[in-house]
Amino acid sequence: MNSPTIPNEYTSEDNLIAGLIRQDEAAFRFAIKQYQGPMFALAQGIVGMKIADEVVQEAWFSVMKSIAKFQRRSTLKSWILTIVANEAKTRLRKEKREVSLEALSSDDPDMQSRFDDSGHWGQPPSDWQADAPEALLSTDQLKSCLDRTISLLPALQGATLNLKERQGYSLNQVCNILDVSESNVRVLLHRARNRLYKVIEHFQETGECCTE
């Protein structure tokens, strides 16, 4: 079918919201064009590629049902992304995958073992030959290794890392989207970064991918 021409009026958020409330087709098409990308990326970060599509579709349905109740305390985009995050978290809970903050009080298992009792490096970081991202990513092997590692991170760690580093959200925005306190977001982010640090380090030393 031919897409109707999208009127420019919807570049104004107020008009767009009003159009969505009227259930105007062009408004929905405009919103889908604007937000489908970030919504999909967020859902994928939390539930993985396979069911991200269903989560996003559910989220659109919720947006349609509840847009009239949107209070405008945030931008439309962050309101929609919060809905996506909630759908995704509900979905994870149904599948009985953990969504809790995985034992955040204890030490980071990835780095803890690297220090001796006095807090000095027992196993110091090895010196990498590469000194730029381009050099590290010049091999497809490491690229796919990092992708795989990110997809295997605990749900909230993966979501935090994807939102912050790959989609450029601020810490504060990540807190709101995932409904996690800022200090916990920092811990999640730090764990995820350390995990990837270790994967790159191992790859630099051995040329092999280790996701354990």
């Binding site: 994928q44 970081p125 990498w128 992708d147 580093e165 990837l196």
Partner: peptide
């Protein structure tokens, strides 16, 4: 190397081109 790790993650291509 941590800063390099972060810049590397930021440069990873997205699964779908936005």
């Amino acid at each position: 190397q941590m800063k390099l790790t972060i810049r590397t993650i930021q440069k990873l291509p997205e699964a779908k081109d936005s």
